[in-house]
Simulated scan of single mutants.
Amino acid sequence: MKLRVLGCSGGIGGRDQRTTALLVDDDVLIDAGTGVGDLEFEELVRIDHIFVTHAHLDHIAMIPLLVDTVGEARSMPIVVHATAETLRILRSHIFNWLVWPDFSSIPDRHNPFLCFQEMRVDEVAKLGRGRFMKALPALHTVPAVAYQLSGEGGSLVFSGDTAYSEPLIAAINEIPDLRYLLVETAFPDALHDLALASRHLCPSLLALFLERIKSNPEVWITHLKPSRARTTLEEIAGYCGRFSPKALYNGLELTL
């Protein structure tokens, strides 16, 4: 099983700045930010599942365009998995016939291009081929989850957008085969108060978070704000510890 980074930036600007989207093999997305737009049509058609961490635009922007682009070329609907709160936001504010058509009723409700599947924290979705996706607790300004992706080669955790979260740390510490931890750090320490208010991590909060992790996964940093990325990474590197976090980048492939 392979996970390919399509987008991991906290903003846009230039070819390297795409918002959050991770492609699992060729048929599963974790979030669907602007990075999805770099896929070819033939790749888009193969996407069967989208697991959404939360409803903010940088994580869901390409869902409406993806469904509109490939709906008629597929024999089955694309399934969007998310918490009940996130699905309610998508239905009410995106697929509402005002911002975008409701593709869960196009061409009709019995044969839609899109369907929604509620996913609760701790629930596990079976994806076939020995792949599993589990929702983990996260803490953000809107209802949010992290995801644990598991296969024969171990597990990966993607934090999504989150503040320091004891429940998320506890969930991570229960994973015996954790190989990769993809964790957000949006702001430098100079914007510590903004990080707290917007429920994101900054380097000092990331250090506290990582100190509580009992295993030794590879740590990759995501959701860096483009204008502050270099400073944020320098501050992360300055914290002592057993981890040496690296910046996630578009095109990176991780294998499980």
Score class of each variant (00 low, 15 high):
Glu118Pro: 12
Phe158Val: 05
Leu156Trp: 01
His81Arg: 08
Lys134Val: 01
Trp97Asp: 15
Met119Ser: 10
Glu118Arg: 10
Tyr147Ala: 02
Glu152Leu: 15
Ala138Phe: 11
Leu201Met: 06
Ala144Val: 02
Gly153Thr: 01
Arg88Gly: 14
Leu201Pro: 01
Val124His: 05
Leu178Thr: 00
Val124Met: 12
Leu181Met: 07
Ala163Ser: 10
His140Val: 05
Leu194Val: 12
Leu191Thr: 00
Gly128Arg: 13
Ile89Trp: 12
Leu98Ala: 13
Leu149Glu: 06
Glu166Gly: 06
Val124Arg: 06
Pro143Gly: 02
Val121Ile: 10
Thr162Arg: 15
Val142Leu: 14
Ser198Leu: 15
Val79Ile: 14
Pro101Gly: 05
Val99Trp: 01
Ser104Asp: 11
Ile175Cys: 06
Leu114Arg: 01
Phe158Gln: 07
Arg129Met: 11
Phe116Leu: 14
Arg199Ser: 04
Val124Tyr: 11
Phe116Met: 13
Arg88Asn: 13
His81Gly: 10
Ser159Phe: 07
Leu178Arg: 00
Val99Ala: 14
Thr141Met: 14
Met119Gly: 10
Asp177Ile: 06
Arg109Ala: 14
Phe116Asp: 11
Pro188Gly: 06
Arg91Ala: 14
Asn96Pro: 08
Asp177Gly: 03
Gly160Asp: 03
Glu123Arg: 01
Tyr164Asp: 05
Ser75Trp: 02
Tyr147Trp: 11
Glu72Pro: 02
Glu85Ala: 14
Tyr180Glu: 05
Ser159Asp: 13
Leu98Ser: 11
Glu152His: 09
Gln148Lys: 12
Ala135Gln: 04
Asp102Thr: 02
Pro112Glu: 04
Val124Asp: 13
Ala84Met: 02
Phe132Met: 07
Pro77Met: 01
Ala186Arg: 04
Leu139Met: 08
Val99Met: 12
Glu152Asp: 14
Val80Arg: 00
Pro107Lys: 03
Leu201Glu: 05
Gly154Gln: 09
Ala195Ile: 07
Arg74Val: 00
Val80Phe: 07
Pro188Asp: 02
Arg109Phe: 09
Arg91Lys: 15
Ala138Asn: 03
Met119Ile: 10
Met133Lys: 04
His93Phe: 15
Leu178Cys: 00
Ala186Asp: 09
Arg129Glu: 15
Ala190Asn: 11
His140Leu: 04
Ile106Ser: 00
Leu114His: 04
Arg74Pro: 03
Ala170Thr: 01
Pro143Trp: 10
Leu149Gly: 01
Val157Leu: 15
Asp122Val: 01
Glu123Leu: 03
Ile78Tyr: 02
Phe95Glu: 06
Phe95His: 01
Leu114Lys: 00
Asp177Tyr: 08
His140Glu: 11
Phe187Ile: 08
Trp100Gly: 10
Ile89Val: 13
Pro167Trp: 09
